[in-house]
């Protein structure tokens, strides 16, 4: 059979993941997982919150698109099934440590600089902070005993993750007025390895 976009049935969402829920696996988009407030498996609630705060400030819409659930899901699977952009960027798996160290550095730098929690930052404050972190390590970024990846690198990675989850779906293409034109639609469940 010849395969092309004309004879493959279009089936809906373009970023459907298999999320563990209780003893089973359900297929949802990261946005649906976010909306249903599914539990995290690798991230703590605080880490997920930090991802959403920073990710959404960098790429508006990333939080609602399910950024934290997307990253949590990808951290849960085998390396060869992990589709985070980090796999291109010379970071050795597992990637959990990269995110946890970076998020801790982000939280501590905010607390030291602004004397408040990241969730309490104003738009101007977080924008100023991002402007610094994309260029160099902000003050208090990597404290002794808490060495973290360079802030500009973490910014680049989280920005890429956020663009992935926000702009890779068929709905997002449609919002940009780009025809998706799939040959094979990526709608199958991404298996989650048993813990």
């Amino acid at each position: 059979m010849k395969i092309n976009r004309r004879n493959f049935t279009l089936t809906g969402g373009a970023l459907t993941l298999g999320f563990l829920l209780g003893d089973g696996v359900i297929s949802l988009t990261p946005a649906e997982a976010k909306a249903q407030n599914l539990p995290f498996h690798r991230l703590t609630k605080n880490q997920a919150s930090l991802i959403d705060i920073l990710g959404d400030a960098i790429v508006p819409g990333a939080k609602a698109a399910g950024l934290s659930h997307y990253i949590d899901h990808q951290l849960s699977v085998r390396h060869q099934d992990n589709l985070l952009i980090l796999r291109y960027l010379r970071v050795n798996p597992p990637f959990d440590g990269f995110y946890s160290a970076s998020l801790q550095a982000f939280e501590e730098a905010i607390q030291q600089r602004y004397h408040k929690e990241p969730s309490d930052l104003t738009e101007v404050e977080i924008s100023d902070f991002i402007t610094i972190m994309m260029q160099k390590n902000p003050e208090f970024w990597s404290l002794p005993g808490h060495e973290a990846p360079p802030a500009p690198f973490f910014y680049f990675v989280l920005r890429s993750d956020a663009i992935d989850v926000t702009y890779s779906t068929m709905e997002a293409f449609d919002s940009l007025d780009i025809p998706y034109m799939a040959h094979l639609e990526p709608a199958h469940t991404w298996e989650v390895s048993p813990k």
């Binding site: 099934d81 589709l83 890779s168 998706y180 639609e185 990526p186």
Partner: peptide
């Protein structure tokens, strides 16, 4: 599959 994310499976792991 037609996805830049899924395509990463084709790269080295």
């Amino acid at each position: 599959t037609s996805s830049q994310i899924h395509a990463r499976r084709l790269k080295w792991s």
